[in-house]
């Protein structure tokens, strides 16, 4: 058996092991990967950057903990950017396993906001983020299509109280805020088909500016909506999050993850190329032997 035959019959578990070893080694080695920012990510940053203080952004955290690695960095960066710019945020979490995770993320970002930071040359003093003044967390309700439609009439229709049980009218930032007409944009960070409903039931019906933060698996599927203007920006996977961290000068887990992504992708590309070379050589050999037409 020559080396080609051995390669073609290689047990896939060796490939898994090799990939894991590469990821672990890359994790241990310190180096920086250059990040080039795409137009669709830049447009989200520019939009949020242009909003005046006290404007309200609705951040829909529509993913479960199984998408945490890809989507949490997006949430952290965007929410911190909004709060540093003194924007207010309404959080929703329309994925059933998401509310606890969202609550924890809000607390983590709140802690980070207490520190002085300098982003893009601007110094931001640390400040206390207060529930009901800087943000409202509406929580989770099932049947997201109906929730998205209902919020178009009035947030109170689907969420009489917030996640913590406080009536919405008792929260200072929600006074006079009734529906999508009172918010600047919706940022949907999603790991499932909830995004379809934000596009069609939300943006399609109520015509608010919508941007998406998506898992890598979903991203290619949603580019047509970018072309048609139904969404004004898309962040795709961990790379999209890393691009946003680059724009905000707030490096986090996504930029760090690029150190592992790069060698892992190179390994996968190498295996695809080797597999194809092996396949074509094998086919040619069998053709010559008259085995395959």
């Amino acid at each position: 058996m020559n080396i080609l035959d051995k390669m073609m019959r290689l047990d896939r578990r060796w490939i898994f092991l090799f990939l894991i070893v590469v990821c672990v080694v890359a994790n241990a080695v310190e180096f920086e990967v250059p990040i080039l920012v795409n137009r669709e990510v830049q447009s989200i940053y520019d939009f949020i950057d242009s909003l005046p203080p006290d404007d309200i952004v609705l951040v829909a955290i529509d993913y479960d903990p199984n998408n945490l690695a890809e989507l949490h960095p997006m949430t952290f960066t965007i929410v911190e950017q909004c709060w540093r710019k003194k924007l207010k945020i309404i959080f929703t979490s329309l994925s059933q396993n998401g509310p606890g995770m969202t609550d924890q993320a809000i607390r983590d970002i709140t802690d980070s906001m207490a520190l002085d930071r300098t982003y893009n040359g601007v110094e931001y003093k640390g400040r206390e983020i207060v529930n009901g003044i800087d943000y409202t967390f509406l929580g989770y309700k099932p049947y997201f299509a109906l929730i998205i439609l209902g919020m178009g009439q009035n947030f109170r229709l689907q969420f009489p109280t917030d996640y913590y049980g406080t009536p919405l009218d008792s929260l200072p930032m929600m006074r006079g805020v009734n529906n999508y007409d009172d918010i600047a944009c919706v940022m949907d960070i999603s790991g499932g088909n909830i995004t379809d409903y934000w596009i069609s039931y939300g943006q399609g019906r109520f015509d608010f500016p919508l941007a998406l933060g998506l898992t890598g698996v979903m991203t290619a599927q949603y580019y047509p909506y970018l072309g048609s203007g139904q969404v004004f920006g898309i962040m795709g996977g961990l790379l999209g999050a890393a691009e946003y961290e680059e724009l905000t000068e707030n490096p986090g887990l996504a930029k760090d993850g690029m150190r592992i992504q790069l060698p892992a992708h190179i390994v996968i590309i190498l295996f695809i190329v080797l597999g194809n070379i092996g396949f074509f050589i094998d086919r040619r050999k069998r053709k010559q032997e008259g085995g395959v037409q």
Binding site: A69, T215, G257, Q261, A264
Partner: peptide, 12 residues
């Protein structure tokens, strides 16, 4: 994009 997504989960 799918490969990137799966590797991202492994990174996590």
């Amino acid at each position: 994009y799918t490969v990137m997504g799966r590797i991202s989960l492994l990174v996590g």
